[in-house]
Design a protein around this nucleic acid. Structure first.
Lengths: 236, 236
DNA sequence: GTGCAAAACATCGTATACAATCTCACCACC
DNA sequence: GGTGGTGAGATTGTATACGATGTTTTGCAC
């Protein structure tokens, strides 16, 4: 189904092995196999993927442009540890752009797109009912994919890329500050948004989107906690 | 006035010499000293800045993430040559985000900020009346800085970075498809927007912003022209 | 035993070197 | 004369090497 997109990827983005490493690490971060603050030394990354430090470094640099890793001069790269302030900005940005993306997507959406969206939802629901870490991780990814697919449907590749960054960073924020052990996204809300789009109730769809984002944010505990490092040290 | 920001830059972003090279090239692109399509070979860039290809390559990679340079596998880096479709997407993105940024900026703006904005406008007007290439270039930069300062005032560094990318890429688009030899931005429109903010007429300010963006877009000729390459070859 | 200093270690920053790929000119052949 | 292949040159892709910077550990003095 994605053969065309994949072919283009393989042709264009196979540009260097660094891209592959970047994608692999990003996926690991988004699926929360890598925790915020984890050190990603160039040598280790290079050894892990059997490439030289040159490529490892390029991959880490790329991830730092996306805000997923922070590189500190002469100290190394770490999985980003967004501050509460950054977290607020990320969700502020999402509140700002997602209604607009939704409007553009609604203007161009096809029945096929709706089918795909509903398929995604089904998959998401299935994963939600399953047990186990891998199911949980796949669910996190699927939940983000809903927002990304809307961006893709909007037809604006710039906004799409921007949303990819925001969704990925959101995953980091939820990993850090999320409270509920439940799902990362209110699942049913995604369905409601699709329904509103189908019914051509654009304003309501935007309202639902804003509420949806607000719900995710409401599950965060963004209080500063300086002593977290100490606590963690004990709990580990 | 920017000592704090500069210090942080010097401390954080002097991370590598690559940053400096990246900034220098970006400035050259935004000020249109480098035309779209110009080849930027790693060796040449390296020699120009007296560094190795390693750093030159890193700088070019960074610029490619911002969409200002396109790197083609095994072929090299070129100043980006945005297609009409890309141009449309860039301005579509600006229409989408700038009103939102404006609203957030208006909510946090201080009298000091307004003073700075007006200073910027004055500078812009002064440059507009001057003759010469350097004045024209400075004017282009100042014109973009107005939009960037609004993003800075909004206090959301993520949106700020995104706007930096959009403004820079807009400059490329205008260089390619702009028709009027006149200024890149309707200068007075910037002033009108500030006035609307001061008067707390937020909706009107947003309308003005949208009109402003529309004016810039209206000056573009985004028709596809396949034969351009041939023509250019002759005209060169 | 505590605190500081210096050296050893680990890691990053940058340069250089070699391999892979592309471009283009030149020549043989049709 | 045009077409296709082949080889030299140029440019990028990747690896390795060396110097610079930060961190840890060791040892000595108090």
């Amino acid at each position: 189904m994605k053969s065309a997109a994949k072919a283009q990827q393989a042709e264009d983005s196979a540009e260097t092995g660094a891209q592959q490493i970047r994608d692999a690490i990003r996926e690991a971060i988004v699926e929360r196999r890598l925790s915020p603050g984890t050190k990603l030394s160039e040598s280790d990354v290079g050894n892990l993927f059997s490439v030289s430090r040159t490529l490892a470094r390029a991959a880490l640099q790329a991830l730092s442009y996306e805000g997923l890793v922070s590189v500190e001069k002469n100290r190394g790269a770490f999985v980003a540890y967004p501050s509460p302030e950054e977290a607020r900005q990320i969700f502020s940005a999402r509140r700002l752009v997602e209604p607009g993306i939704l409007r553009e997507a609604a203007a161009r959406i096809t029945p096929d797109d709706i089918t795909h969206l509903r398929q995604l939802l089904l998959e998401e629901g299935r994963l939600m009912s399953e047990r186990g870490q891998t199911a949980r991780r796949a669910e996190i990814k699927a939940s983000g994919d809903f927002h990304l697919m809307l961006a893709a449907i909007s037809g604006n590749s710039i906004m799409q890329r921007f949303m990819e960054e925001l969704v990925a960073r959101s995953s980091l924020v939820i990993a850090l500050y999320g409270q509920s052990t439940a799902s990362s996204c209110g699942h049913s809300e995604h369905g409601d948004i699709i329904s509103a789009i189908e019914a051509d109730e654009l304003d309501r769809a935007c309202q639902l989107m804003l509420h949806h984002i607000a719900h995710i944010e409401a599950d965060l505990d963004l209080r500063e906690r300086k002593s977290l490092g100490l606590k963690e040290a004990f709990e580990l």
